[in-house]
Write a protein that binds this DNA or RNA. Structure first.
Lengths: 150, 150
DNA sequence: CTAGGTGCAAAAGGTTTGCGGTTAA
DNA sequence: TTAACCGCAAACCTTTTGCACCTAG
């Protein structure tokens, strides 16, 4: 039985629409499918390499363009971890990220509790909050275990 | 009466030590003083320009090196807002940041409540959290007011 | 049909690095 | 005295852009 992550229906999300003046192109579809196929958080270059397998003519610039457009449409999310290359994720549910300094993996982490910016931060009166990002870095369980073993 | 932020004793922090094999040089002292003088969150280039007034021979690369070294020593903090140039801050108290998309200002925001990563995120068992960052972006009160007025 | 998208190559722009000379401790 | 640091310029690397051709709607 195929898992949720690899089932064709899930991967191809045939109903995806971008809205506005944005067209759904073969390149955007492939980029999106790559993001949905494995819920790791690939960089633009990694997305490029994966898409290239199925579509050898695609260019890195196009991948950047696709990712930016889809992020603008709210279909994809850009995740920035300090100065490292941006990563992208298709999980639009509200969540935080945990970055492992040892293996470089980025994983989604659920927010605990109420999730409104005001619950986390003393936002000054009169501000308009458009988005909030909660992230942590350190060692993931696997790398933490390895470190102890050494 | 000089404010806390501009009083010479505060600016010069004569007792600052870096520890380890790190030396306190005139360049590092100036970079640090600039960060403590105005609690805005200057980029490396902005720090460079400010230090240059008092020390015309300093180079941008040195400012980058000083900032990195001092961040490593825990004397200074690097603040990354998405893909924009890194900013630096001398406030080592735990706090979050609010970035205004209109005027580009970054201001410190107090965390509300308990402040431990586990209170915010469902950190997987066995992880070791080294640091947490909470940030928000949107419009600061001044820019929000202007937008309404238009 | 045509505005929007693609691919390519070149540029941009923040940050890092190699190196010969300098300096804090 | 000497390892650490500085200033300079060049390199690095991710991301953006200009442009001629292509394609979704």
């Amino acid at each position: 039985m195929p898992s949720k992550e690899t089932s064709p229906a899930f991967r191809e999300s045939p109903e995806l629409k971008l809205g506005g003046d944005f067209r759904m192109t073969r390149q955007r579809r492939e980029v999106y499918d790559v993001l949905m196929a494995h819920r790791d958080h690939p960089t633009a270059t990694e997305v490029f390499l994966r898409v290239k397998d199925r579509m050898p003519t695609i260019s890195l610039a196009t991948v950047y363009n696709c990712l930016e457009t889809m992020a603008q449409c709210g279909v994809v999310r850009q995740v920035n971890v300090d100065r490292e290359p941006s990563r992208y994720c298709g999980n639009m549910m509200e969540h935080g990220h945990f970055y492992c300094e040892s293996c470089g993996s980025v994983r989604d982490v659920d927010l605990r509790g109420p999730r409104k910016p005001d619950d986390y931060l003393m936002i000054p009166d009169g501000s308009i909050v458009e988005k909030m990002e909660v992230g942590a870095r350190g060692l993931c369980p696997a790398c933490a275990a390895k470190r102890v073993a050494k």
